[in-house]
Amino acid sequence: MKKIILLIALSTSFGCLSFAQTDTTDLMAQLEKDNKPETIYTTATFKTTRLINGHTVENTGKGVLDVKISHRFGKLNNGAYELWGLDNASMRFGFDYGITKNIMIGVGRSTFQKTFDGFLKIKILSQSKGKHKMPITLSYVPAIALRTLKFEDPKISNKASNRLFYAHQLIIGRKFSEGTSLQIMPTFIHQNLAKLATDPNNIFALGIGGRQKLSKRISINVEYYPVIGDRINGTTDALSVGFDIETGGHVFQLHFTNTPGMTENSFISQTTGKWGKGDILFGFNISRVFNIGKRK
């Protein structure tokens, strides 16, 4: 009997000893296995909140003020006398602010038709993996623009309601890989006053855009907003190609586009340039972020 007890005791303690000698690799492996997979949200689908003229699925961080200064020069086909468009510039300056991680607001003023604009961007879904899986990021961007350029026709009243534009945009984006992101942007534009009786008040466009990184800090972007259905007479679809260059807190965006407008209502519904005819405008956006709010 005693022998049996001794045997049991011996075997138990040997068991324990052998357990003690296995290193902590097993323990670490076990810990990592037990650790419930957390939801990992995809970040940096695009480098900044604008692709070229329009929005991306990105939001400004909470408490971050993003000052954006954008220029579109004149048309390249203006020739040497206008220094291929560089003598003229259409510009917009704007301030974007992140209220929360998922809600940002922005205001701006464009020289194009002396327009003031404001928008909200609300992230409804965030692409993620891990515990909660979500294949896409979905954002909703309602925007309003007020043209303050007076109408040439004295018969048209300059009252504010005649000069208002509204835009509602959904952005569905996905980061497919480290370097490749695509998004589609169905957009609805309403102009309170149509210039001609044959011009529509409501315009719908199905935008598509994407980026491909060329290096860690440089990417090439394409953005195209084809109008579907009725369009304002004589207008074309906005098509832009550009580069993002990021350096610390700055993002420089250099691009070629066929529109001088930088708000949804202007570049989607009022573009008149044709790439084929050389109505190409060189432009840039500069973004600089400032941390003004507290981040927890």
Binding site: L6, A9, S13, F19, A20, T24, L27
Partner: peptide, 22 residues
Amino acid sequence: MRNCLIIVFLFTCISVTAQKSY
């Protein structure tokens, strides 16, 4: 003597298992 051994082994066992922490 044997009882002592048992106790020693058991003790070893307990103290050994308590040495990994995380």
